[in-house]
Write a protein that binds this DNA or RNA. Structure first.
Lengths: 159, 159
DNA sequence: AGCGCGTATGTTATAACATATCAATCCGAA
DNA sequence: TTCGGATTGATATGTTATAACATACGCGCT
């Protein structure tokens, strides 16, 4: 699976594509992509960066889609549960899923300079972490894998 | 490297041992293990669980070692920077390092039931995550690897 | 001793992130 | 069409983290 986020790409189609997939998923699973939820996903999709709940809320509020924290948190909760977005624990922030539709365990590469975030896929439970867990008798249900550092662009700029 | 946290072990020596190593590290590197810092480390060491900054603060406050948030955050900041403690991002909480002195990239196994946390070591930058990063041209500086699930004990209890 | 400097602490206030609760409303299924 | 679950609206509050500024302490220097 490719790592999406740092490479140049056709972003408008990347956005439209994800929205379509999300709609299809909802139709299939009886979920409702309501206006707030849909708009929240669009806002997250607008950038390959993580947005804080209150950043999202600010945009929604401007558009009259709700002004209180629960509005943003409910929308984010829905998107995360549906697999349309992920929470970046190291940033307490949220990002649209870049691999929507594929069954995946996300891993993130977070640039500390420009704040862009790429979503890779590393199946951590099958690697060394899985080995360590097996050895300890631990049953992994969810894995958080986040790497912080410099993206290709900022790395070149620093050199 | 072994995974410390779930197995029965001589905890009082595990605590004393870590404190000694921390003192040695400080002496070697010109760091100061002041009363608040030392006590904070002891408090974290008391359990193989993660404590919130305010949990730590409550204990420190009881003992007259400071009553305001910055006291706890400064102590935690020192311990983390010195490598004596780690932050568990998925819990917004802190835990004493179980492998103090060894040069390591920690990975955590977090039991969602009993909240115990084991520290493993998986060198994630050399596994699949490292491969993905290399492929993307990303330079990893820090990696957060945290698995949530059931520890051996709670797993057995559930079955 | 007195001074200068850097580290650590004390204290207030506030920023940033997140959830509880309860009432009102929507919308599909029976 | 009415019931019930899902969604939204709104207020309040809980939790985690940091900004900002003042003060105290340790230590080398003269």
């Amino acid at each position: 699976m490719t790592t999406i986020g740092f490479e140049p790409h056709d972003h408008s189609s990347c956005v439209a594509d994800t929205l379509h997939r999300a709609e299809a998923e909802c139709a299939k699973n009886g979920l409702r992509l309501t206006p707030v939820r849909r708009r929240a996903l669009e806002i997250l999709l607008a950038e390959h960066r993580a947005l804080g709940a209150y950043d999202l809320l600010a945009v929604l509020a401007e558009e009259g889609l709700g002004a209180q924290p629960p509005v943003a948190y409910r929308a984010l909760d829905f998107l995360v549960k549906a697999g349309f977005a992920h929470k970046i624990e190291a940033l307490n922030a949220y990002i649209a899923c870049a691999h929507l539709g594929t069954n995946h365990t996300p891993a993130f590469l977070i640039c500390r300079k420009c704040k862009s975030v790429a979503e890779a896929d590393t199946a951590p439970a099958q690697g060394r972490l899985g080995d360590a867990a097996r050895e300890a008798g631990f049953k992994i249900e969810r894995a958080v894998v986040e790497a912080e550092g410099l993206c290709p662009h900022c790395r070149d700029a620093a050199a």
